[in-house]
Design a protein around this nucleic acid. Structure first.
Lengths: 113, 113
DNA sequence: AATAATACATAAGATTCCAATGTATTTATA
DNA sequence: TATAAATACATTGGAATCTTATGTATTATT
């Protein structure tokens, strides 16, 4: 199943923050591949989505960056700042509560009321 | 907890279709109140969101309407068409699968890999 | 030698929601 | 009985956010 964009929208920051919380540091391309792999290609995070997300997180002070060279190729690693770690937990919890709330709407058979 | 709009975005059609599947017919104001009540005010569906959603569903042939008068006040009831019933099931299932996929990203402690 | 994969990034456009606004009726309250 | 709150419809302009497309360059594979 391929998910409609409007469903995935709004979860990208949460996904990136959580991946960084679990992996200390990752670079952009690595994140796109990890998401694809972990979701069995059900969620694709393209560059057009990822890089603006990373840059937004950086400007909010939630991630820090360090640049490495692999040969001549630049690799930009992203890590969580302390506030980023807190934010990661917060966003994951928020998503869980959102799902619980949605289940109040979607799982109950309202005819019985 | 108040959910950020970008998380709720994309679920409105699903919510409305499911409510209509469980209640045969509902009018707009009733839907806003039911959502508020069922989610304990965690999700608010305002008119600016609801009516465009209902009109979109109507133009897609997923809902039909009938107008009633309660005194002088117009009340417009919305019901699912056959394709709307199918769509409702489909969207609810889609949301469940989306959640399952997100849990692949958010619930696993990736450090262990 | 050519292609695919790796790796960064931006920009224009589309979509979609949200806040604000508007009209009108009915019910509750002061 | 006047006023406020709740009920009930609806639209619109703006904001936010993602997606598609595009661009550049290096490294690995065939």
């Amino acid at each position: 199943m391929i998910f409609p964009p409007e469903l995935i929208k709004g979860t990208f920051k949460t996904i990136v923050l959580k991946l960084l919380a679990d992996n200390k540091k990752m670079y952009g391309y690595e994140i796109t591949q990890r998401v694809k792999e972990l979701t069995r290609e059900r969620i694709q995070m393209t560059e057009g989505t990822l890089y603006p997300t990373l840059h937004a997180l950086e400007s909010e002070g939630l991630v820090t960056t360090e640049t490495e060279y692999i040969g001549k190729r630049v690799r930009k690693y992203y890590s969580l700042s302390p506030s980023g770690k807190a934010k990661s937990k917060e966003k994951v919890k928020e998503f869980a509560e959102f799902v619980a709330t949605m289940q109040l709407l979607l799982d109950t058979n309202l005819k019985a009321i």
